[in-house]
Write a protein that binds this DNA or RNA. Sequence first.
DNA 1: TGCAAACCATAAC
DNA 2: GTTATGGTTTGCA
Length: 194
Amino acid sequence: MIEIYTQILDSTCFAVALTQQQIVTSSFGANQQTVINNILSKIPCNTPFQVFCEPTLSARNVLTVLKSIYDGKEDNPNLPLATAHLPSYTKKVLKTTAAIPLGYVTTYGAIAKASGGGPRAVGNIMAGNPFAPIIPCHRVVKSDFTLGGYGGGLKVKLELLSRESRSFETIKHIQVNGEQLEAFPVEYVLRNFT
DNA sequence: TGCAAACCATAAC
DNA sequence: GTTATGGTTTGCA
């Protein structure tokens, strides 16, 4: 049984779908109905679920972490994610994306290089990211450092990145899957908007 | 700048 | 199997 919980914090709705052990999918947004629809569209079909009005204590803990990521305060929360049912390439791309540190962004192409495959395939997987904002797909932008797309809207993507600004100045190389992933200071993106 | 062609895993038929 | 579909990239005028 999958249990779905939502909570509104500072007028943004956060939601998770949980089994006893793992997070099946998560989402957030201004409109509660949209967020719930999003959650429902991503739970594996033929799986029974139930929507709860009041989050349990452990659900509230997860929702609080989502909020803190949304606020640009927390990174790499190490929550148990249910990825077993996802295609293996999808898992690889999500794992690579999760390696982007707070304060940095990378590009669809760079992720493609580090996980194999092509940039468009990466974009497709970002678009279907079941674990927003835990898997930081908002930190993935186009090769010219314009935003690209975002499920929650480009305005939200920009706001998230703004809050994650840590004024780093140098490019960082991250090891993931035995490959190198280039990460660029989030300022590379933000300076296009000033 | 702007456009066209190459690109590549998924999901849907 | 086959096709359609992008949150892309690159090259070239």
